[in-house]
Each structure stands twice: as C-alpha cells, then as structure tokens.
C-alpha cells in the first residue's frame, strides 16, 4: 500500500488546478486566499506575470480606489496578462473592486479606464436620508444563474462598497441586489465572473460560491 500512496499523492497534486490570487497592493488578499484554501483550492499569491501565466485561474480581489488599482496593474505589467488569460478562455473571478475593474469606466476614476472586458460603467450610490453610503452589511441577493446552484434565492452576503457596476448588456447579470435601486451584484460572461459582495466574508454561503468557482476548472 505504501508505494501506491507515494505515487498517488504527486499525481493528485498535479491534477488540481492552480489559482493565482493577484497581489497588487489593494488590500485583503489574505482572507480570499484562506477562503479558497478552505474550499480545497491550490493557490499562489503573486504579482509576477510569468507565474500568473502558468496558472489555470485568476482571482482578482481588491478594495480601494479604481484609479490606484488600474495604475498598479499597469505598473506590474498585469493588464495584458489578465486580458490574455481571459482570451484563452481560462476562468477569472473579480471580487469587489476586482469586479469593477472589468468594466470600461468608473465615476470614481478620473485618470484611468478599466480593463473593458465587460461593457458598461461603475457608478456611485446616491446617498439619501434613508440610504446610507457605503452600502455596508448583509443584504439578500436574487440569483439567476446555474453558477449559483445550491445558493437559495434570498441568501445573505456581505457588502462593503460605495460604487456598483452598471453593465450595458443585461445578459451578463447573474445576481441582483436591492439598495435603493436594483443593481448587478454578480456578473458572468463565458469564463469571466465578478462579485460585488465578498464571498470570502460571507460565511457558509460565500464559501459555497467559491467552491463552485473552483469546480469550473
């Protein structure tokens, strides 16, 4: 039995795909990494183009300013790496700011354009007396995609943002949330996925979503 195990282990390791979590100085990489590990993924936290190219999936997390994030990605030479990865039909997941960067422009950004992989823009919530901004806390979502298989309609996930995406093509919207308006809180187009909420902070529901993502590969 012992030699069999010895052979089996390396093979198994080779068979599990590798996820690159892009570390571009935009916060909270740690939680995403741990959550993916708990879901059984093999991960690499990196900002090296050659390492990211060798991975099967990309996760782009991030909180903070749109301009800073795009400038960091440019500086690290990662914009083309991400675009090549997506063109090659390999799975990509953007979380929070990482999702917003997929779009063409943002009201927040004065200097830079987004990755432009999805058509549309990122807008700011308008604060009202009964609508505090940032949208912060647990809100229920309406799911409309097989990607969210096993996630009940009305499940609660954790949000923490002042901007939200407004896709030009409604067909990319796979989940919506209501905060003053109905907005797209998750998008998908072929191999590209984006979540405005934080699956890595959304307890069991969030971990289940990440598990589904890992299974794409």
């Amino acid at each position: 039995m012992i030699p069999a195990v010895k052979v089996f282990l390396p093979l198994r390791v080779l068979l599990i795909s590798m996820i690159a979590i892009i570390d571009y100085g935009m916060g909270n990489i740690h939680s995403v990494n741990k959550a993916l590990e708990v879901c059984g993924a093999r991960t690499l936290v990196t900002n090296k183009p050659e390492v990211i190219r060798s991975c099967d999936m990309i996760v782009l997390p991030g909180v903070g300013a749109f301009d800073d994030a795009m400038q960091e990605l440019e500086k690290l030479g990662l914009v083309s790496v991400i675009k090549e990865h997506i063109l090659a039909q390999k799975p990509f997941l953007g979380i929070c700011l990482g999702m917003q960067l997929l779009f063409e422009t943002s009201e927040e950004a004065k200097l830079t354009k987004g990755l432009g992989i999805l058509k549309g823009k990122v807008r700011r919530f308008e604060a009202r007396k009964d609508l505090k901004v940032p949208h912060m806390g647990w809100n229920s979502i309406k799911v409309a995609s097989p990607f969210f298989k096993g996630i009940a309609d009305g499940s609660f996930v954790y949000f923490c943002h002042s901007y939200y995406p407004e896709p030009k093509e409604k067909s990319v919207i796979v989940a919506t949330c209501n905060y003053g308006i109905d907005f797209a809180c998750a998008v998908a187009q072929n191999n590209v996925f984006g979540m405005q909420f934080h699956p890595e902070k959304s307890q069991k529901v969030g971990l289940r979503m990440l598990e589904s993502f890992i299974k794409l590969c």
Partner: peptide, 8 residues
C-alpha cells in the same frame, strides 16, 4: 480613505 477606500 483615499488610499484604501472609505468603506474600510
């Protein structure tokens, strides 16, 4: 807040 975002 400019660097990390108001939300945090």
């Amino acid at each position: 807040s400019e660097r990390f975002g108001s939300q945090c």
